[in-house]
Design a protein around this nucleic acid. Structure first.
Lengths: 177, 177
DNA sequence: TCGAGCATGTAAATGGTTACATGATTGC
DNA sequence: GCAATCATGTAACCATTTACATGCTCGA
Protein backbone atom coordinates (compact mmCIF):
# COMPACT_ATOMS: atom_id res chain seq x y z
CA UNK A 1 0.00 0.00 0.00
CA UNK A 2 1.32 3.40 -0.89
CA UNK A 3 0.21 6.97 -1.47
CA UNK A 4 -0.54 6.18 -5.11
CA UNK A 5 -3.19 3.71 -4.06
CA UNK A 6 -4.70 6.18 -1.59
CA UNK A 7 -4.90 8.89 -4.25
CA UNK A 8 -6.40 6.51 -6.79
CA UNK A 9 -8.95 5.56 -4.14
CA UNK A 10 -10.07 9.16 -3.72
CA UNK A 11 -10.19 9.81 -7.45
CA UNK A 12 -12.31 6.70 -7.88
CA UNK A 13 -15.06 8.65 -6.10
CA UNK A 14 -14.79 11.52 -8.59
CA UNK A 15 -12.40 14.11 -10.04
CA UNK A 16 -10.44 16.32 -7.64
CA UNK A 17 -7.65 18.87 -7.68
CA UNK A 18 -4.45 18.26 -5.71
CA UNK A 19 -5.59 20.83 -3.20
CA UNK A 20 -9.00 19.24 -2.66
CA UNK A 21 -7.34 15.83 -2.39
CA UNK A 22 -5.10 17.16 0.34
CA UNK A 23 -8.03 18.64 2.30
CA UNK A 24 -10.11 15.52 1.94
CA UNK A 25 -7.31 13.29 3.11
CA UNK A 26 -6.75 15.44 6.18
CA UNK A 27 -10.42 15.09 7.06
CA UNK A 28 -10.81 11.33 6.66
CA UNK A 29 -8.12 8.80 5.80
CA UNK A 30 -5.52 11.26 7.09
CA UNK A 31 -5.94 9.87 10.59
CA UNK A 32 -4.43 6.55 9.53
CA UNK A 33 -2.50 7.65 6.43
CA UNK A 34 -1.11 11.15 6.32
CA UNK A 35 0.46 12.98 3.38
CA UNK A 36 1.72 16.53 2.92
CA UNK A 37 0.87 18.63 -0.12
CA UNK A 38 4.24 18.41 -1.91
CA UNK A 39 3.95 14.66 -1.66
CA UNK A 40 0.49 14.71 -3.19
CA UNK A 41 1.47 16.97 -6.10
CA UNK A 42 4.54 14.90 -6.97
CA UNK A 43 2.60 11.66 -6.71
CA UNK A 44 -0.17 13.00 -8.98
CA UNK A 45 2.50 13.93 -11.49
CA UNK A 46 3.97 10.44 -11.51
CA UNK A 47 0.51 8.84 -11.69
CA UNK A 48 -0.21 10.97 -14.77
CA UNK A 49 3.07 9.87 -16.35
CA UNK A 50 2.02 6.24 -15.85
CA UNK A 51 -1.39 6.92 -17.36
CA UNK A 52 -3.27 5.97 -14.18
CA UNK A 53 -4.82 9.45 -13.93
CA UNK A 54 -5.32 12.34 -16.33
CA UNK A 55 -6.25 15.98 -15.82
CA UNK A 56 -7.95 18.95 -17.40
CA UNK A 57 -6.97 22.55 -16.77
CA UNK A 58 -9.53 24.99 -15.54
CA UNK A 59 -8.38 28.54 -16.26
CA UNK A 60 -9.88 31.00 -13.86
CA UNK A 61 -9.50 34.73 -14.32
CA UNK A 62 -8.93 36.44 -11.02
CA UNK A 63 -8.13 33.18 -9.23
CA UNK A 64 -5.42 30.52 -9.41
CA UNK A 65 -5.84 27.92 -12.12
CA UNK A 66 -6.97 24.43 -11.26
CA UNK A 67 -5.75 21.06 -12.46
CA UNK A 68 -8.62 18.65 -12.13
CA UNK A 69 -7.49 15.06 -11.94
CA UNK A 70 -9.56 12.01 -12.90
CA UNK A 71 -8.82 8.32 -12.63
CA UNK A 72 -8.40 6.36 -15.88
CA UNK A 73 -9.50 2.79 -16.56
CA UNK A 74 -5.90 1.66 -16.10
CA UNK A 75 -5.91 3.55 -12.80
CA UNK A 76 -9.04 1.77 -11.62
CA UNK A 77 -7.46 -1.59 -12.47
CA UNK A 78 -4.33 -0.65 -10.57
CA UNK A 79 -6.37 0.52 -7.58
CA UNK A 80 -8.22 -2.75 -7.05
CA UNK A 81 -5.13 -4.80 -7.78
CA UNK A 82 -3.22 -2.86 -5.12
CA UNK A 83 -6.03 -2.99 -2.57
CA UNK A 84 -6.12 -6.76 -2.81
CA UNK A 85 -2.42 -7.53 -2.98
CA UNK A 86 -1.51 -5.93 0.30
CA UNK A 87 0.82 -7.35 2.90
CA UNK A 88 -1.09 -5.09 5.30
CA UNK A 89 1.83 -4.44 7.62
CA UNK A 90 1.13 -1.48 9.87
CA UNK A 91 3.64 1.29 10.33
CA UNK A 92 3.39 3.01 13.65
CA UNK A 93 5.53 5.56 15.44
CA UNK A 94 4.32 6.81 18.79
CA UNK A 95 6.88 9.15 20.34
CA UNK A 96 5.02 9.27 23.66
CA UNK A 97 5.57 5.56 24.21
CA UNK A 98 9.25 5.84 23.31
CA UNK A 99 9.62 8.72 25.74
CA UNK A 100 7.90 6.68 28.46
CA UNK A 101 10.11 3.69 27.79
CA UNK A 102 13.31 5.69 28.15
CA UNK A 103 12.33 8.68 30.24
CA UNK A 104 11.73 7.22 33.71
CA UNK A 105 14.55 9.43 35.02
CA UNK A 106 12.54 12.55 34.23
CA UNK A 107 10.59 12.02 37.44
CA UNK A 108 6.92 11.72 38.45
CA UNK A 109 6.20 15.46 38.29
CA UNK A 110 7.32 15.64 34.68
CA UNK A 111 5.15 12.68 33.73
CA UNK A 112 2.10 13.89 35.60
CA UNK A 113 2.17 17.15 33.64
CA UNK A 114 3.00 15.68 30.28
CA UNK A 115 0.41 12.93 30.50
CA UNK A 116 -2.26 15.35 31.70
CA UNK A 117 -1.59 17.60 28.69
CA UNK A 118 -1.62 14.63 26.41
CA UNK A 119 -4.95 13.52 27.88
CA UNK A 120 -6.54 16.90 27.14
CA UNK A 121 -5.27 16.84 23.57
CA UNK A 122 -6.61 13.32 23.02
CA UNK A 123 -10.01 14.28 24.38
CA UNK A 124 -10.14 17.12 21.85
CA UNK A 125 -9.32 14.69 19.04
CA UNK A 126 -12.10 12.38 20.21
CA UNK A 127 -14.60 15.24 20.04
CA UNK A 128 -13.43 16.03 16.53
CA UNK A 129 -14.03 12.43 15.44
CA UNK A 130 -17.42 12.37 17.11
CA UNK A 131 -18.60 15.46 15.25
CA UNK A 132 -17.39 13.91 11.99
CA UNK A 133 -19.32 10.79 12.92
CA UNK A 134 -22.60 12.67 13.21
CA UNK A 135 -22.31 13.92 9.63
CA UNK A 136 -21.71 10.41 8.32
CA UNK A 137 -24.63 8.11 7.58
CA UNK A 138 -24.51 4.73 9.25
CA UNK A 139 -25.97 2.01 7.07
CA UNK A 140 -26.12 -1.73 7.47
CA UNK A 141 -23.63 -3.83 5.52
CA UNK A 142 -26.20 -5.54 3.28
CA UNK A 143 -27.62 -2.26 2.03
CA UNK A 144 -24.41 -0.36 1.35
CA UNK A 145 -21.20 -2.22 2.15
CA UNK A 146 -19.03 0.66 1.00
CA UNK A 147 -20.65 3.17 3.32
CA UNK A 148 -20.67 0.63 6.14
CA UNK A 149 -16.92 0.01 5.84
CA UNK A 150 -16.20 3.73 5.69
CA UNK A 151 -18.25 4.26 8.78
CA UNK A 152 -16.28 1.51 10.51
CA UNK A 153 -12.95 3.18 9.79
CA UNK A 154 -14.18 6.26 11.63
CA UNK A 155 -15.55 4.01 14.35
CA UNK A 156 -12.03 2.64 14.67
CA UNK A 157 -10.69 6.14 15.28
CA UNK A 158 -13.28 6.79 17.96
CA UNK A 159 -12.65 3.46 19.68
CA UNK A 160 -8.92 4.01 19.58
CA UNK A 161 -9.20 7.46 21.14
CA UNK A 162 -11.46 6.09 23.86
CA UNK A 163 -8.95 3.35 24.62
CA UNK A 164 -6.07 5.86 24.68
CA UNK A 165 -7.95 8.17 27.02
CA UNK A 166 -8.79 5.37 29.46
CA UNK A 167 -5.19 4.20 29.38
CA UNK A 168 -3.88 7.70 30.14
CA UNK A 169 -6.43 8.20 32.92
CA UNK A 170 -5.39 4.93 34.54
CA UNK A 171 -1.74 5.92 34.57
CA UNK A 172 -2.52 9.36 35.97
CA UNK A 173 -4.54 7.75 38.77
CA UNK A 174 -1.63 5.48 39.60
CA UNK A 175 1.02 8.17 39.70
CA UNK A 176 -1.32 10.45 41.66
CA UNK A 177 -2.63 13.26 39.54
CA UNK B 1 11.89 12.16 18.17
CA UNK B 2 14.07 10.12 15.86
CA UNK B 3 15.98 6.88 15.66
CA UNK B 4 19.02 8.54 17.22
CA UNK B 5 17.06 9.20 20.38
CA UNK B 6 15.75 5.63 20.48
CA UNK B 7 19.26 4.21 20.11
CA UNK B 8 20.66 6.55 22.75
CA UNK B 9 17.83 5.39 25.01
CA UNK B 10 18.84 1.75 24.67
CA UNK B 11 22.53 2.48 25.13
CA UNK B 12 21.70 4.44 28.28
CA UNK B 13 20.82 1.05 29.82
CA UNK B 14 24.24 -0.38 28.93
CA UNK B 15 26.60 -1.09 26.02
CA UNK B 16 25.27 -3.05 23.05
CA UNK B 17 26.31 -4.08 19.56
CA UNK B 18 24.28 -3.02 16.54
CA UNK B 19 22.96 -6.51 16.25
CA UNK B 20 21.83 -6.71 19.88
CA UNK B 21 20.24 -3.27 19.54
CA UNK B 22 18.26 -4.49 16.56
CA UNK B 23 17.04 -7.61 18.40
CA UNK B 24 16.14 -5.67 21.51
CA UNK B 25 14.19 -3.11 19.56
CA UNK B 26 12.22 -5.79 17.78
CA UNK B 27 11.26 -7.26 21.13
CA UNK B 28 10.15 -4.10 22.90
CA UNK B 29 9.99 -0.58 21.48
CA UNK B 30 9.78 -2.09 18.00
CA UNK B 31 6.01 -2.35 18.34
CA UNK B 32 5.68 1.44 18.34
CA UNK B 33 8.95 2.39 16.65
CA UNK B 34 10.45 0.00 14.14
CA UNK B 35 13.87 0.15 12.50
CA UNK B 36 15.69 -2.18 10.12
CA UNK B 37 19.29 -3.21 10.62
CA UNK B 38 20.87 -1.06 7.89
CA UNK B 39 19.20 1.92 9.48
CA UNK B 40 20.60 1.05 12.89
CA UNK B 41 24.15 0.58 11.62
CA UNK B 42 24.18 3.85 9.71
CA UNK B 43 22.65 5.74 12.62
CA UNK B 44 25.24 4.31 15.04
CA UNK B 45 27.94 5.48 12.66
CA UNK B 46 26.60 9.02 12.57
CA UNK B 47 26.10 9.08 16.35
CA UNK B 48 29.76 8.09 16.74
CA UNK B 49 30.82 10.89 14.38
CA UNK B 50 28.95 13.36 16.57
CA UNK B 51 30.59 11.98 19.71
CA UNK B 52 27.27 10.89 21.26
CA UNK B 53 28.38 7.24 21.38
CA UNK B 54 31.73 5.46 21.19
CA UNK B 55 32.68 1.84 20.64
CA UNK B 56 35.29 -0.79 21.37
CA UNK B 57 36.11 -3.66 19.06
CA UNK B 58 35.92 -7.18 20.36
CA UNK B 59 37.98 -9.44 18.14
CA UNK B 60 36.76 -12.98 18.27
CA UNK B 61 38.67 -15.79 16.67
CA UNK B 62 36.31 -18.20 14.99
CA UNK B 63 33.37 -15.80 15.14
CA UNK B 64 32.49 -12.42 13.62
CA UNK B 65 33.95 -9.40 15.37
CA UNK B 66 31.78 -7.21 17.51
CA UNK B 67 31.57 -3.46 17.79
CA UNK B 68 30.31 -2.69 21.24
CA UNK B 69 28.74 0.74 21.47
CA UNK B 70 28.41 2.84 24.63
CA UNK B 71 26.72 6.14 25.25
CA UNK B 72 28.95 9.14 26.10
CA UNK B 73 28.18 11.97 28.52
CA UNK B 74 27.31 14.17 25.56
CA UNK B 75 25.03 11.39 24.35
CA UNK B 76 23.23 11.24 27.68
CA UNK B 77 22.70 15.00 27.59
CA UNK B 78 21.33 14.77 24.07
CA UNK B 79 19.03 11.88 25.04
CA UNK B 80 17.27 13.73 27.85
CA UNK B 81 17.15 16.96 25.88
CA UNK B 82 15.46 15.12 22.98
CA UNK B 83 13.06 13.19 25.20
CA UNK B 84 11.79 16.44 26.70
CA UNK B 85 11.64 18.62 23.59
CA UNK B 86 9.24 16.45 21.67
CA UNK B 87 6.33 17.62 19.63
CA UNK B 88 4.98 14.09 20.16
CA UNK B 89 3.14 13.87 16.87
CA UNK B 90 2.20 10.30 16.07
CA UNK B 91 2.85 8.78 12.69
CA UNK B 92 0.48 6.02 11.81
CA UNK B 93 -0.17 4.07 8.64
CA UNK B 94 -2.73 1.30 8.77
CA UNK B 95 -3.22 -0.23 5.31
CA UNK B 96 -6.21 -2.29 6.45
CA UNK B 97 -8.20 0.87 7.19
CA UNK B 98 -7.26 2.41 3.85
CA UNK B 99 -8.33 -0.76 2.08
CA UNK B 100 -11.64 -0.72 3.97
CA UNK B 101 -12.20 2.93 3.12
CA UNK B 102 -11.72 2.38 -0.60
CA UNK B 103 -12.46 -1.29 -1.10
CA UNK B 104 -16.22 -1.57 -0.56
CA UNK B 105 -16.53 -2.78 -4.15
CA UNK B 106 -14.58 -5.92 -3.31
CA UNK B 107 -17.74 -7.40 -1.83
CA UNK B 108 -18.81 -8.98 1.48
CA UNK B 109 -17.19 -12.35 0.84
CA UNK B 110 -13.81 -10.74 0.29
CA UNK B 111 -14.12 -8.76 3.52
CA UNK B 112 -15.35 -11.69 5.58
CA UNK B 113 -12.27 -13.68 4.64
CA UNK B 114 -9.77 -10.89 4.95
CA UNK B 115 -11.06 -9.68 8.29
CA UNK B 116 -11.21 -13.21 9.68
CA UNK B 117 -7.57 -13.75 8.72
CA UNK B 118 -6.64 -10.43 10.19
CA UNK B 119 -8.42 -11.33 13.41
CA UNK B 120 -6.43 -14.56 13.77
CA UNK B 121 -3.17 -12.71 13.17
CA UNK B 122 -4.05 -10.07 15.77
CA UNK B 123 -4.93 -12.72 18.33
CA UNK B 124 -1.49 -14.25 17.82
CA UNK B 125 0.13 -10.86 18.40
CA UNK B 126 -1.85 -10.42 21.60
CA UNK B 127 -0.59 -13.77 22.89
CA UNK B 128 2.95 -12.71 22.08
CA UNK B 129 2.54 -9.50 24.10
CA UNK B 130 0.97 -11.38 26.97
CA UNK B 131 3.88 -13.79 27.22
CA UNK B 132 6.28 -10.84 27.20
CA UNK B 133 4.20 -9.29 29.95
CA UNK B 134 4.68 -12.27 32.23
CA UNK B 135 8.45 -11.92 32.07
CA UNK B 136 8.25 -8.24 33.01
CA UNK B 137 8.03 -7.19 36.66
CA UNK B 138 5.15 -4.89 37.49
CA UNK B 139 6.09 -2.38 40.17
CA UNK B 140 4.25 0.56 41.61
CA UNK B 141 5.24 4.02 40.38
CA UNK B 142 6.60 5.27 43.71
CA UNK B 143 9.04 2.39 44.03
CA UNK B 144 10.40 2.30 40.50
CA UNK B 145 8.95 4.85 38.09
CA UNK B 146 11.15 3.68 35.22
CA UNK B 147 10.00 0.08 35.47
CA UNK B 148 6.41 1.20 35.94
CA UNK B 149 6.45 3.31 32.77
CA UNK B 150 8.05 0.51 30.77
CA UNK B 151 5.41 -1.86 31.98
CA UNK B 152 2.75 0.63 30.90
CA UNK B 153 4.09 0.79 27.34
CA UNK B 154 3.61 -2.97 27.07
CA UNK B 155 0.22 -2.60 28.71
CA UNK B 156 -0.61 -0.15 25.91
CA UNK B 157 0.23 -2.81 23.33
CA UNK B 158 -2.00 -5.35 25.06
CA UNK B 159 -4.88 -2.90 25.41
CA UNK B 160 -4.58 -1.86 21.80
CA UNK B 161 -4.64 -5.46 20.56
CA UNK B 162 -7.70 -6.18 22.71
CA UNK B 163 -9.47 -3.16 21.27
CA UNK B 164 -8.53 -4.15 17.71
CA UNK B 165 -9.76 -7.72 18.24
CA UNK B 166 -13.11 -6.55 19.64
CA UNK B 167 -13.50 -4.10 16.76
CA UNK B 168 -12.79 -6.82 14.18
CA UNK B 169 -15.17 -9.26 15.89
CA UNK B 170 -17.95 -6.67 15.87
CA UNK B 171 -17.57 -6.09 12.15
CA UNK B 172 -17.51 -9.81 11.41
CA UNK B 173 -20.71 -10.25 13.39
CA UNK B 174 -22.37 -7.49 11.40
CA UNK B 175 -21.37 -8.75 7.98
CA UNK B 176 -22.30 -12.31 8.99
CA UNK B 177 -19.22 -14.42 9.56
C1' DT C 1 25.27 -30.44 4.22
C1' DC C 2 21.91 -27.23 4.86
C1' DG C 3 19.49 -23.85 7.16
C1' DA C 4 19.21 -20.78 11.09
C1' DG C 5 21.33 -17.53 13.82
C1' DC C 6 25.28 -14.44 14.72
C1' DA C 7 27.51 -10.25 13.04
C1' DT C 8 28.77 -6.66 10.02
C1' DG C 9 28.13 -3.45 6.65
C1' DT C 10 27.26 -0.74 1.62
C1' DA C 11 24.47 0.94 -2.41
C1' DA C 12 20.59 2.27 -4.87
C1' DA C 13 16.20 3.68 -4.81
C1' DT C 14 12.08 5.36 -2.83
C1' DG C 15 9.44 7.95 0.39
C1' DG C 16 8.70 12.00 3.08
C1' DT C 17 9.50 16.66 5.33
C1' DT C 18 10.73 21.44 5.33
C1' DA C 19 11.65 25.43 3.24
C1' DC C 20 11.23 28.20 -0.70
C1' DA C 21 8.35 30.55 -4.18
C1' DT C 22 4.23 32.90 -6.19
C1' DG C 23 -0.10 35.23 -6.40
C1' DA C 24 -5.13 36.14 -6.08
C1' DT C 25 -9.41 36.82 -2.92
C1' DT C 26 -12.07 37.56 1.16
C1' DG C 27 -13.04 39.10 5.63
C1' DC C 28 -11.48 41.53 9.82
C1' DG D 1 -3.05 46.38 5.91
C1' DC D 2 -2.86 41.62 7.53
C1' DA D 3 -4.06 36.99 8.06
C1' DA D 4 -6.38 33.14 6.18
C1' DT D 5 -7.80 30.34 2.43
C1' DC D 6 -7.40 28.96 -2.29
C1' DA D 7 -4.09 26.95 -5.56
C1' DT D 8 0.12 25.47 -7.55
C1' DG D 9 4.52 23.75 -7.56
C1' DT D 10 10.14 23.00 -6.91
C1' DA D 11 14.46 21.95 -4.35
C1' DA D 12 17.20 20.28 -0.80
C1' DC D 13 17.53 17.37 2.53
C1' DC D 14 16.63 13.52 5.57
C1' DA D 15 14.62 8.87 6.56
C1' DT D 16 13.65 4.35 5.20
C1' DT D 17 13.53 0.11 2.50
C1' DT D 18 15.37 -3.47 -0.36
C1' DA D 19 18.89 -5.68 -2.34
C1' DC D 20 23.54 -6.85 -2.31
C1' DA D 21 27.65 -8.77 0.07
C1' DT D 22 30.42 -11.62 3.34
C1' DG D 23 31.57 -15.21 6.52
C1' DC D 24 31.54 -17.97 10.74
C1' DT D 25 29.17 -21.55 14.04
C1' DC D 26 26.03 -24.86 15.63
C1' DG D 27 22.57 -28.22 15.53
C1' DA D 28 19.56 -31.36 12.80
Amino acid sequence: MDLQTVILGFLNDGPLTGYELSKRMDASVGFYWHATHPQIYTTLKSLAKKGLVDFTMEYQSGAPNKKIYSITDAGRDALFRNLQSETLKDEVKIPLLVAMYFGGELGPQYWRELLANHLDAQKAVLEQYRSLCESLPQTDPDRDLKQFLRYKTLDFGIGYQQFLIRWLEDILKEIGE
